[in-house]
C-alpha cells in the first residue's frame, strides 16, 4: 500500500537531482540556426569533394540534412531528439574507409570555421562524434 508512494517519492527526488542539461555547446554552435548552417555548409563542401561525393549520389539529401541537424543538436546538448537510423545501419554497405571519415571531418571543420565557430567548440563537437567512427567505417 505504501510502496507506490515511496516509489513515487524516489522517482521525484531522482528527477529533482538530475542536473540541468548542459547546452553550452549547443549555444556555442549558434543554436538551431547555427547548426543548420553548419550542416548545410558541410553538405555543400561534400558535394564539391571528389574524395567522397560518390558516396552521396543516390541519397535523399533533404532527409540526411534533417537527421544530421537533429543528431548534432542532440549531441551538443540542445533540445532535440535524434529520430534517424543508427550509425551502423545508415553506413552499412558503404564500405567507408578511415580516409573517407577524415574527409568528412575536414569538411565539417571547414563549415564550422566558415560559421565563425570558435576552435574549442569545434573540438567539443568533434570529440562527441569521434567515438562513432567504429560504427561508421568498414561496414
Amino acid at each position: 500500500m505504501r510502496l507506490p508512494i515511496i516509489a513515487l517519492l524516489l522517482a521525484l527526488s531522482a528527477c529533482a537531482q538530475q542536473p540541468p542539461r548542459d547546452d553550452s555547446l549547443y549555444r556555442a554552435l549558434g543554436d538551431q540556426a547555427g547548426i543548420e548552417a553548419v550542416v548545410e555548409g558541410m553538405l555543400l563542401k561534400i558535394a564539391a569533394d571528389p574524395r567522397i561525393v560518390h558516396h552521396f549520389e543516390d541519397v535523399d539529401i533533404q532527409r540526411l540534412r534533417d537527421k544530421l541537424v537533429e543528431q548534432f543538436c542532440m549531441e551538443a546538448g540542445g533540445p532535440c531528439t535524434y529520430s534517424g537510423d543508427s550509425m551502423e545501419e545508415s553506413h552499412t554497405g558503404l564500405n567507408l574507409t578511415p580516409s573517407d571519415f577524415n574527409a568528412l571531418v575536414e569538411n565539417l571543420q571547414a563549415a564550422m570555421t566558415e560559421q565563425g565557430i570558435a576552435i574549442p567548440a569545434q573540438n567539443r563537437l568533434l570529440a562527441r562524434l569521434a567515438p562513432m567512427r567504429g560504427q561508421i567505417i568498414d561496414r
Binding site: A118, I119, P120, A121, N123, R124, L126, A127, A130
Partner: peptide, 9 residues
C-alpha cells in the same frame, strides 16, 4: 586528445 588543452587539441 580532442579539446584536451582548455578546449584546444
Amino acid at each position: 586528445i580532442l579539446g584536451g588543452a582548455f578546449g584546444y587539441n
